[in-house]
Simulated assay, not measured.
Amino acid sequence: MKRFFRRKVEAWLILLAAKILIDRNAQRAPVVSRRDNNDMWYMAEKLDAIAQRISKNYP
């Protein structure tokens, strides 16, 4: 049971990081280049996939 909660918390923290990256990307800041914006979006997608695998115990 302890591992279950740990997996869920870890997945939630990764999803939080992905959300921060996507929200940062939503409003284009003048100090962030287009390439960096695209990289942040790509990283957020990858983090989302990782969080799903962790949450489901790597099926």
Rank of each mutant, 00 (worst) to 15 (best):
M43H: 14
A18I: 02
R53F: 04
N25T: 15
Q27G: 02
R53N: 04
K46Q: 07
N37C: 01
W12S: 15
R3C: 14
R7E: 03
I14T: 10
M40V: 00
V32K: 04
R7L: 06
D23G: 13
D48K: 15
D36K: 12
A49F: 06
K56S: 13
N37P: 00
A11F: 09
M43C: 15
R6K: 11
A44W: 04
Y42P: 01
A51E: 02
K8V: 12
L47F: 09
D48E: 15
R34A: 09
I54S: 07
Q52L: 09
L16I: 00
V9D: 11
W12C: 10
P59R: 11
D36G: 01
N57D: 08
Q27M: 03
K19R: 00
K8P: 02
K8Q: 14
A18M: 03
I22A: 03
A26P: 00
A17Y: 01
K8G: 09
P30K: 05
I14A: 03
A26K: 10
L15F: 05
D23K: 08
L15E: 10
E10F: 11
A26G: 01
L13K: 09
A44L: 05
L13D: 08
A26M: 09
D23T: 10
A29H: 09
K46G: 01
Q52I: 13
I20C: 03
R6L: 08
N57S: 11
K19C: 00
N37M: 02
Y58D: 00
L16W: 05
S55R: 12
L15S: 06
M43S: 15
D48Q: 15
P30T: 05
A18K: 01
P59L: 03
P59Q: 07
N25S: 15
K46C: 08
F4W: 11
A11K: 07
A11T: 07
M1V: 10
D36E: 14
L47P: 06
Q52H: 15
L21T: 04
R53A: 06
I50C: 09
M1A: 15
K19L: 04
R6E: 00
M43Y: 11
W41L: 11
D36I: 10
K8C: 07
L16N: 00
K56L: 09
N38L: 07
R53D: 01
N37S: 06
P30G: 00
I14S: 05
Q27H: 09
L13G: 07
R24G: 08
W41K: 12
V9G: 04
L15V: 01
R28A: 08
M1K: 12
R34L: 03
N38E: 02
R35M: 06
I50K: 14
W12F: 12
R53E: 04
R7H: 13
R53M: 04
D48R: 14
K19V: 02
Q52F: 10
A11V: 06
R6V: 05
M1E: 10
L47T: 07
